Computed example of a mutant assay.
Amino acid sequence: MAPTSRRQSIIPPPFQAFHDAYHFSPATRVGDTIWVSGQVGIDAEMEPGEGMQAQARLAFESLKVVLEAAGASLADIVELTTYHTNLREDVEVFGAVKDEYIPNQYPSWTAIGVTELALPELCIEIRAVAVAGCGDA
């Protein structure tokens, strides 16, 4: 994807229904910078994963799909913000999964404890900012 200073909505095919129903873009790209909306731990059937580890993996897989549609990769993430319904108990498990998906060139990371997410079963939401191509260095 060639960089442009125009704002581009990034809507991978699996996210089209969300875009249509809730009127938001899974990601927005301007130039090489990509802002990714919060990704949660649900599968293709819209079912939450069982526990933090499964939900974190599902959320990172969704994040990967969105970034690839925007012309970037997980290696290009420069900032991560995570929202946890049980931050103190789950942060170590989440951190281990995060390190599987982002094994080096760690991004800035802010973890925030919240009382609830979009579905009562959800325990994690991940949003990110990436700069396309910066992880290749």
Rank of each mutant, 00 (worst) to 15 (best):
Val40Asn: 06
Phe94Tyr: 09
Ile42Tyr: 14
Ala17Glu: 15
Leu67Glu: 00
Gly135Pro: 05
Ala132Gly: 01
Glu125Met: 10
Pro48Met: 07
Arg127Pro: 12
Arg57Asn: 13
Pro12Phe: 05
Tyr101Met: 02
Gly71Phe: 01
Cys134Gly: 07
Ile112Thr: 09
Pro107Val: 02
Gly31Phe: 05
Val30Pro: 06
Thr115Glu: 09
Arg88Phe: 15
Glu125Lys: 11
Gly38Tyr: 07
Pro107Phe: 03
Ala59Arg: 03
Gly41Thr: 05
Phe24Gln: 04
Asn104Lys: 10
Gln39Trp: 02
Val129His: 01
Leu58Val: 08
Cys123Phe: 03
Met1Thr: 10
Ile126Cys: 02
Glu100Met: 06
His84Pro: 06
Gln16Trp: 15
Val65Asp: 14
Ser73His: 10
Glu79Thr: 12
Asp20Ala: 11
Pro26Trp: 04
Gly49Trp: 03
Ala21Met: 15
Ala59Gln: 10
Leu63Phe: 01
Val40Pro: 02
Tyr106Trp: 12
Ala111Pro: 04
Ile11Val: 09
Ser62Asn: 10
Asn104Ser: 13
Cys134Arg: 11
Asp90Thr: 12
Gln39Asn: 07
Glu116Gln: 13
Ile77Val: 13
Asp99Val: 10
Ala27Phe: 02
Thr4Tyr: 08
Leu122Asp: 05
Ala59Leu: 07
Trp109Gln: 11
Pro120Met: 14
Ala70Trp: 00
Ala27Ser: 05
Glu125Thr: 11
Gln8Val: 07
Gly113Arg: 05
Phe24His: 05
Glu68Pro: 03
Lys64Asn: 08
Pro3Met: 04
Leu80Ala: 04
Leu58Asp: 11
His19Asp: 05
Glu68Ile: 04
Val40Thr: 09
Ala128Phe: 00
Tyr22Ile: 14
Ala128Asp: 01
Ile77Trp: 00
Gln39Pro: 03
Ala59Glu: 10
Tyr106Ser: 09
Ala72Cys: 05
Leu119Met: 07
Leu122Gln: 12
Leu67Tyr: 00
Ala137Gly: 12
Arg127Gln: 15
Pro14Trp: 03
Gly133Pro: 03
Ala111Met: 10
Gly113Phe: 08
Glu92Ile: 14
Gly31Met: 10
Ala70Tyr: 00
Pro14Ala: 03
Asn86Asp: 11
Phe94Lys: 05
Ala137Cys: 14
Glu89Asn: 09
Arg7His: 14
Gln55Phe: 15
Gly31Val: 12
Ala132Leu: 01
Glu121Ala: 07
Gly31Arg: 05
Ala75Met: 07
Ala59Asn: 06
Gly133Asn: 03
Ile34Pro: 00
Leu117Ile: 10
Thr33Arg: 13
Gly38Ala: 07
Leu80Trp: 04
Ala54Gln: 11
Arg29Asn: 02
Leu74Ala: 01
Pro107Thr: 04
Ala72Arg: 02
Val131Thr: 14
Glu89Leu: 14
Leu67Gln: 00
Leu122Phe: 04
Gly31Tyr: 06
Phe15Ile: 04
Ser37Pro: 04
Val129Leu: 14
Ile11Tyr: 02
Val36Cys: 01
Met1Arg: 06
Val36Lys: 00
Arg57Asp: 08
Gly38Ser: 11
Asp32Gln: 10
Phe15Val: 04
Asn104Leu: 15
Ile42Thr: 15
Ile102Thr: 05
Lys98Cys: 14
Gly49Cys: 06
Glu68Lys: 09
Phe24Tyr: 15
Leu63Asp: 00
Glu47Cys: 11
Ser9Val: 08
Thr115Arg: 09
Glu50Val: 15
Val131Pro: 01
Phe24Ile: 02
Ser73Leu: 07
Glu100Thr: 06
Arg6Asn: 13
